[in-house]
Design a protein around this nucleic acid. Structure first.
Length: 926
RNA sequence: GGGUGGUUAGCUCAGUUGGGAGAGCAUCGCCCUUACAAGGCGAGGGUCACUGGUUCGAGCCCAGUACCACCCA
């Protein structure tokens, strides 16, 4: 083995072998006595590439899948990708645009062919990247939301919902994206606060007796006003209610009405009502039976319903002209600066318009009710639990879902119209004709496609074969857990629950593990425009600084030169040498270690570096073990093995680590699980056990049976540890296991098919734990003296032990070898309590004094200051505890055990203090 | 406006039922000891945001305040 771990040398080869040998495959039916374990991947956009969020969630999903596979479950991690309607269509349109071609030049069919071409070309990127992460998905089952099977499921669901009256077509206000020319759902609109204005406009009364002032943030919509409203209890305007307004710039008269919705204190207390261009006004219009006047085209230009002077103007041009005209008529009272929430399309970034159109909707209330109940009844559990409140709140206020999109890429709506505009819904045109006995009259198919999330909502059961009754459906549904981010609870999670319950009668998953969102090390969201994006593949392979800068600034718009410079500067400052190659396992372990319950995870490259070092530690520990066991007797035969106290201790410690790991994973606390592994591997196995094994293996005082016992323990603990680490770090564990397994008596082709280690209470050895605890105290005491006195670690020193108990003496005798080697002691001598001892630096192990004679080694002053420091520490503690114990309230009311513990503590501190004081006295006498 | 989460060491974060403030990285000192300098050994560093309350005892429970972040309207 090389001296340092090199992930590049092994990762891809190992993955290819796993995949070729089909180790990731699940079975359609469980074997006798076997459980199933299933995770559905949140399908990434087919043309996308892997980002840090994916890498994080995939690490969790893969760790769970590998863990359960090793536990013997029939494990299925279902992979696949999403067609991502708007996103993908936009990419292809942009590519065509670069060649000067629009989708309309091509026509629908040819454009869709182009999208498929693009999908073939770039659709493999993300699944290839997933392989780099070590994702053990069942690739044979890979699905795509536009596959024939899934498209069939979409048809079936649409038709059934329509037939039950749960899908309907209706005309109402939708969020209209005037750039993409499609409706979008409420969730696809992002409202940010922006600086705007509040225009106060004078609206004259029709009878010429004066005017009202209305305040608006969108003056151009006044062309579509159909009323002015005041609050019913607003005395200022009570006498005007029922009168008419002469709407400026138009020839229309509109009424003054009252409505509770109006805020008396906002502006003048009078509100213009534009039912066709505002959601609130729309509702008010319905309440008062006001006419709807649509004044916009689908591209947000003024249409022919408005006075001729404004027709054809773009919405913001129209605003300017209208303000100017109001001013000219002396009807502009004032303009105030005003902050307002501006709704923008999450894809296009342009301001969306409330717009009156015909769209398809899902009637959501009947679906939401059982979905709400499933979580309330505990059939589905959110982890962390508090996300269920977010879910409840949204589900209880849920609106009908607009599912039609005016796009070309997606599942075309299975509805046909005859020449009278009558609509027929069915799986195919033939079915529709036959069912409604239409003969061969002319039918025109609805041009719209479905919201991408409509097909995603069916993902858990559609990928398992629904509507066909495939065995997988029974085997894997409900799936065990959904691993996803809180950003798509509404988009995806809620809709899967609704659709799953409706069409399978089962919940789609029993638990939902909501992961945190990966941010940069300063807590900023990673985004292209901020230039702080990290690519998981770059962490694995490394990247030079020039390439990294190029990547972060590539494709930025020309007018953003200053941003580009800023990003370049910052990137070069943060990564002067680029990013090192850390390997997949280090990155995966980092994600696990950072997966606490926090909702934001600030990703810190220093952590990756630390865990890369951890990989190296494992690698070198394995090198040590192999060096001492290869071609030697590791105790696999029938010859006698004697286990040392260290052997019994490390075996005992491993049991606790396994238990801790398993209980942490059961609660999705991967950070706790990762820390338990790290702690055991580094601080227990490497720092102590490997060192303790050396005196036995290298010493002349041990029998072959003892050496055999230690070799056996060395290699079997490592072998188990590798299996324990495998779900988090699949590659290095496989590579090392291949070498170690035969020496530990394990057979098998791959670690990923081995059983997960189990904890055995019978192997817990309290006596060995106590003995090693004692040994560590003594060694650490001596090391402390060395460290504080600047005695080189390699310099052999003499030691004396005094005032110990019978047990101390026994232990000292039994563990002389360990002490000598680990504390680098030249001599160990037990002295009688009354024996005089040379001037020494001292440490305590319980009552036992450890003396390091100072001759030629130690400065008296230095030792004095070391002891004084120790006394200060202890005195502080002493006064705290004695204060506590002298308080009768504490001794009377606190539990007996707590009081006793404090008393014991105090006693120990006091005896330690007096010993140290004695030592100081004896130093002073010199 | 309503809601949720957060505030602990220089940085990134743990802290389970209230009972001796922890880890990693960074810092300082000694060491290239035959697994590992991507390492070993040792050390320093915190008014647990603030105010008040409950309690014998609060990082943890309660009330309020400030600041940060996100979600919904």
């Amino acid at each position: 083995m090389d001296k340092a771990y090199d992930p590049k040398a092994i990762e891809e080869t190992i993955y290819n072998q796993w995949e070729e040998k089909n180790y990731f495959a699940s079975n359609a039916v469980n074997q006798e006595g076997q459980d199933s374990y299933c995770i559905m991947i949140p399908p990434p956009n087919v043309t996308g590439s892997l980002h840090m969020g994916h890498a994080f969630q995939h690490t969790i999903m893969d760790a769970l899948t590998r863990y359960h596979r090793m536990k013997g479950d029939n494990a299925l991690w279902q992979p696949g990708t999403d067609h991502a309607g708007i996103a993908t269509q936009m990419v292809v349109e942009r590519l065509l645009g670069a060649e000067g071609v629009s989708r309309h030049d091509l026509g629908r069919e040819k454009f869709i062919d182009k999208v498929w071409e693009w999908k073939e070309q770039s659709g493999g990127t993300i699944t290839q990247q997933m392989r780099r992460l070590g994702d053990s998905c069942d690739w044979g089952r890979e699905a795509f939301t536009m596959d024939e099977d899934l498209s069939g499921a979409v048809l079936e669901v649409f038709v059934q919902l329509y037939e039950e009256g749960l899908i309907y077509r209706g005309q109402r206000l939708v969020n209209w994206d005037p750039k993409l020319l499609t409706a979008v759902s409420d969730l696809e609109v992002e409202s940010e606060e922006e600086n705007g204005h509040l225009w106060h406009l004078r609206y004259p009364l029709a009878d010429g007796s004066g005017h009202l002032v209305v305040a608006t943030t969108r003056p151009e919509t006044m062309l579509g006003d159909t009323a002015v409203a005041v609050h019913p209890e607003d005395e200022r305007y009570a006498h005007l209610v029922g009168k008419m307004i002469k709407l400026p710039l138009t020839d229309r008269e509109i009424p003054i009405i009252t409505d509770d919705y109006v805020e008396k204190d906002f502006g003048s207390g009078c509100v213009k009502i534009t039912p066709a261009h505002d959601f609130n006004d729309y509702e008010m219009g319905k309440r008062h039976d006001l006419p709807l006047i649509n004044i916009l085209t689908d591209t947000a230009h003024i249409n022919n319903n408005a006075p001729e002077a404004y027709q054809g103007l773009e919405r913001y041009e129209a605003r300017k002209k209208i303000i100017a005209d109001f001013e000219a008529l002396d009807l502009l009272e004032k303009i105030e600066p005003h902050k307002l929430k501006v709704p923008r399309g999450d894809r296009s970034g342009v301001v969306v318009e409330p717009y009156l159109t015909d769209q398809w909707y899902v009637k959501i209330a009947p679906l939401a009710e059982p979905a709400l109940k499933a979580v309330k009844d505990g059939d589905i559990k959110f982890v962390p639990e508090n996300w269920s409140n977010t879910y409840y709140h949204w589900m209880e206020n849920i609106q009908d879902w607009c599912i039609s999109r005016q796009l070309w890429w997606g599942h075309q709506i299975p509805a046909w119209y005859d020449n009278d505009g009558k609509v027929y819904v069915g799986r195919t045109e033939e079915e529709v004709r036959a069912k409604h006995d239409l003969g061969d009259i002319e039918l025109r198919r609805d041009q719209d496609v479905l919201d991408t999330w409509f097909s995603s909502a069916l993902w858990p059961f559609a990928t398992l074969g629904w509507p066909e009754k495939k065995p997988e459906l029974d085997t894997f549904l409900p799936t065990n857990v959904l691993v996803t981010g809180f950003d798509i609870i509404f988009f995806w999670v809620a809709r899967m629950i609704m659709m799953g319950l409706k069409f399978t009668g089962k919940v789609p998953f029993k638990e939902i593990y909501i992961t945190g969102l990966i941010r940069d090390e300063q807590g900023q969201k990673m985004s292209k425009s901020k230039g702080n994006v990290l690519d998981p593949i770059d962490l694995i392979d490394g990247i030079g600084i020039d390439d990294l800068v190029a990547k972060r600034t590539y494709g930025m718009q020309q007018d953003r030169e200053s941003d580009k410079a800023k990003i370049t500067k910052r990137t070069r400052k943060q990564f002067p040498e680029g990013i090192e190659s850390y390997g997949t396992d280090a990155m995966r372990f980092t994600f696990c270690a950072m997966a606490s319950t926090s909702r934001d995870i600030n990703f810190d490259l220093n952590r990756v570096e630390g865990y890369r070092n951890f990989c190296n530690k494992i690698w070198n520990a394995a090198r040590y073990v192999l060096m001492n066991t290869e071609e030697q007797d590791t105790g696999l035969g029938s010859e006698e093995k004697v286990l040392s106290v260290a052997d019994r201790w490390i075996i005992s410690e491993l049991q606790g680590t396994i238990t801790e790991f398993e209980s942490a994973v059961a609660q999705y606390r991967f950070d706790i699980a990762a820390n338990a592994l790290y702690e055991f591997t580094w601080n227990t196995y490497c720092d102590w056990y490997l060192e303790l094994s050396k005196p036995i293996l290298y010493g002349d005082d041990y029998s072959e049976a003892e050496k055999r016992g230690t070799r056996h323990t060395l290699v079997t603990i490592l072998e188990q540890l590798l299996r324990l680490l495998h779900p988090f770090m699949p590659f290095i564990t496989e590579e090392v296991w291949q070498k170690v397994a035969p020496l530990a008596g394990a057979n098998g082709d791959s670690i990923m098919l081995q059983a997960f280690p189990t904890s055995d209470e019978a192997k817990i050895d309290k006596q060995a734990e106590a003995d090693i605890e004692w040994l560590k105290t003594v060694i650490v005491g001596i090391r402390n003296i060395r460290g504080e006195m600047n005695i080189a670690p390699g310099k052999p020193i003499n030691s004396l032990f005094k005032n110990g108990s019978v047990q101390d003496k026994e232990r000292l005798n039994a563990y002389t070898n360990f002490l000598g080697k680990l504390a680098k002691l030249e001599s160990i001598k037990w002295v009688q309590d009354d024996e005089t001892t040379p001037m020494s630096a001292t440490a305590l192990a319980g009552q036992m004094e450890i003396l390091i004679p100072m001759a030629g080694l130690i400065d008296v002053e230095q030792e004095m200051s070391r002891l004084t420091k120790e006394i200060e520490k202890l005195t502080k503690e002493q006064s705290r505890i004695s204060g506590k114990l002298s308080n009768p309230n504490f001794t009377d009311k606190a539990p007996e055990a707590v009081v006793a513990k404090e008393r014991a503590k105090l006693e120990e501190i006091e005896s330690t203090l007096s010993k140290i004081n004695e030592q100081i006295q004896s130093l002073k006498t010199l």
